[in-house]
Design a protein around this nucleic acid. Structure first.
Lengths: 156, 156
DNA sequence: GAAAAATAGTTATACTAAATAACCTTATTG
DNA sequence: CAATAAGGTTATTTAGTATAACTATTTTTC
């Protein structure tokens, strides 16, 4: 039985389980549930291209900072150097990005998107935007803006 | 070099990396960053008791539904049966919960918190509330309430 | 200007969390 | 009563992450 089938079965069978009023009043808990809700469709869309969310985020950062070093990319993504290697290897193998020895410092690479990478990124940005809006259809445009404002106040 | 030291070093060295306006306008991205921000302190607090967030969440659910079956607990947490086994083993080993054969169906266990589990849970609830509020000091009481309302509209 | 220390990136290894499949026991169904 | 399903466990695999050691350069320092 798949995870989805299993969950549905259990959800149907035991819907009488009570949730907790403490959890329901924690911002952290609500953030997690809302994020899970929104992330599902993004993960499945990116999966069509063999990409994970962090790889999509990497493409966005590379596009915005062409030729940045791997260490800079890793810092942006909060991942360790070995993971940066794996990530860029993956993008290179997919033909979406490349390392170029283009710096005075010959230890480092500049990281760039390929033409194919730029094209795919544009598609994915459109899709991500649509998925984000689709996952928040219950919010009005004003509510979306207000939600963004409040969330930024938390992490900025 | 530790992960934290590494990140700080890089952040200081390369703070000129540009972030992206698309990402900054996605609710999903803001949710993730806000959640990361809020979760750090909770994880470290729970770590003092060798607990992970999912184990804390399990304790909350067990407290609210004493004697529930493992399958019900797994459904609430969206985890698979083998993970439920690991989770309850952990809580049992810490003396915080227990399996009791108390059902007509002798295949299943009722899961309960121990007295120690209930005591610890009360402490942790207080701590979690404080951490949640501490992580959202930039929000007024009205803004907190509004944020909760908007988040619930997304996932409910 | 050469030796020492530090940095960019890579590789290898280990650890952890999660998913999958096979299994045992008890219940239910035909 | 045989066949099937369900609750839970165990074993195995897989993916993600973390750590350590290594190469090749660059910077520092004496």
């Amino acid at each position: 039985m798949s995870k989805l089938e299993y969950s549905q079965k259990i959800d149907n069978a035991y819907s009488g389980v009570q949730s907790d009023s403490l959890l329901d009043n924690l911002i952290g808990y609500a953030l997690k549930r809302a994020h899970v809700h929104l992330n599902k469709n993004l993960v499945s869309k990116l999966g069509e291209y063999e990409l994970r969310p962090s790889q999509f985020a990497a493409m966005v950062i590379i596009k915005q900072n062409p030729g940045l070093m791997q260490a800079e990319l890793g810092a942006q993504l909060s991942i360790e150097p070995p993971q940066v290697v794996t990530l860029i290897n993956k993008l290179e193998n997919l033909g979406l990005a490349m390392r170029v020895r283009c710096k005075p410092d010959k230890r480092s690479y500049g990281v760039f998107l390929s033409k194919a990478g730029e094209r795919l990124l544009e598609q994915l940005k459109v899709a991500a935007k649509a998925i984000d809006i689709g996952g928040t259809v219950n919010l009005s445009e004003n509510e979306r803006a207000e939600l963004l404002r409040l969330l930024r106040k938390i992490y900025q």
